[in-house]
Design a protein around this nucleic acid. Structure first.
Lengths: 249, 249
DNA sequence: GCACTAAAATGAGCTGGATCAAGTTAGTGC
DNA sequence: GCACTAACTTGATCCAGCTCATTTTAGTGC
């Protein structure tokens, strides 16, 4: 884009027209739980979905909204945030293309218990929960993959509980950085660049601390030459050492 | 039992012979995810299970063991604990009859990432993971129920992350008490008795605090007449107030 | 009833991290 | 290049909850 750009982050520049039917079909096949389906089956499934484009920072749904729709990220990133009454946020998950969100549970009285917000421009597919349940009923491979993913998320979630209960802030942040690096990292002159707008506040909300403390820890890491960072971006220069810090003792 | 017993907790007195085939069959039908099966189907499924009796305090499997077996609690209680290297524990879940544990995921290189230990004498059914996957493949109702339960556990787990990150100890403990009351509570002269051996340490490991702090908070609750408790047992006398405390502000 | 033991209560002191409040800058738009 | 602003940094203070250590007590076995 403009030669003035300084952020090392890629400009998403995701135009609305990227959310087309053909792209949808192509992307649906890449979604983990549809991988076992044939092209014809995929075409059938595709009919049930609708696509939507969201700008960065838009809210897709809010905590407390009735949960009748399941969504899949096709392009861009989405974050799931739980808010307390006072407005403090806890960042539950950072999603990338292929990830689904919203409960896959049928229970029609369910409401979302987190808010979904785009972290970049994004293209999102939606399907009625009842339709998705039907698909799972029809194709056990789909149901099984969804179960596998949910189980994995449960395990991650429990690991985070363990960290919150037992590790000091420094280690928690080191761990969050490594995890983000693994999921969103891309090779870059600065190091392993986390391809995602990521503020100190976001980091703090992931590690369960305040943004002031997150900032202090990040300063220290930067001094120790473990990371490079600017506004809303972080690159990892020494992953092994971060990993060591997060696990030591 | 002996007239000398003081604990208000029921004496489990679960003898080995309670783990019989007929009991198994009867109980299997009560497990949430098998409820939609016919008697004949149930009999088929039953063949795949084996039953085991464990004494209180026994370890069923350890964190790091290879995870090739899925288990179901038939009688008694089981707790899932994650340990750090230093031996601190985090209590991830307290299970009751009907609950399954161990990952339902096929991935054969998986290991358990928590330790399962009996909290009372218990009867446990085991099934090979591969057999269970087959059952889920064959009966989509089973797969769907397992998914629903896993999703619910994920939601609980995320709520706990929210609490750990945002609530002070007092509220977290109040919340744990209410939750345990709902799950394990039984009417009793003392109030709503939590039918489970439950030490201050257990409580602390659930709320993410030290047993000293848990003890202090419990003393305060007792002074305020919200609970009654002794060694390893707690009864709730004023649930509405505890609920208010856990949610206030 | 008495002795025994592990659990629980309690005290004293310390500290990691929160909070509040200024400064500083990176990145952008013009 | 310059001005602008939200993001970030950094300092100073404070306290909830931890740790360590001691005393008390509930529950059990005899």
């Amino acid at each position: 884009m403009s030669s003035k750009r300084k952020t090392p982050l890629e400009n998403p520049s995701l135009e609305g027209h990227h959310c087309t039917v053909d792209l949808r079909l192509e992307k649906l096949g890449m979604v983990p739980f549809f991988q076992a389906l044939s092209n014809e089956q995929l075409r059938q499934v595709n009919k049930k979905f609708t696509a939507n484009h969201y700008a960065r920072g838009e809210t897709i749904y809010r905590q407390g909204d009735s949960a009748t729709i399941l969504r899949v990220v096709v392009a861009g990133n989405v974050k799931l945030v739980a808010h307390t009454m006072e407005g403090e946020g806890v960042l539950l998950a950072m999603l990338q293309p292929g990830d689904f969100f919203g409960n896959p549970t049928a229970d029609s009285k369910d409401v979302y218990n987190e808010t979904a917000e785009t972290q970049t421009d994004a293209c999102i597919l939606s399907i009625r929960l009842s339709d998705f349940r039907e698909i799972m009923n029809g194709y056990s491979s789909v149901a099984m993959r969804v179960l596998d993913i949910t189980t994995e998320r449960l395990n991650e979630s429990r690991q985070r509980i363990r960290h919150l209960s037992t590790l000091p802030v420094t280690k928690r942040i080191a761990h969050v950085l490594v995890t983000l690096g693994n999921k969103f990292g891309e090779k870059h002159p600065h190091g392993l660049l986390i391809q995602l707008p990521l503020s100190r506040k976001d980091l703090a909300d992931m590690a369960g601390t305040s943004s002031a403390t997150a900032s202090r820890v990040m300063s220290r890491f930067q001094n120790d030459n473990l990371i490079t960072s600017g506004r809303q971006w972080v690159a990892i220069k020494n992953k092994p050492e971060l990993l060591r810090i997060s696990a030591e003792d």
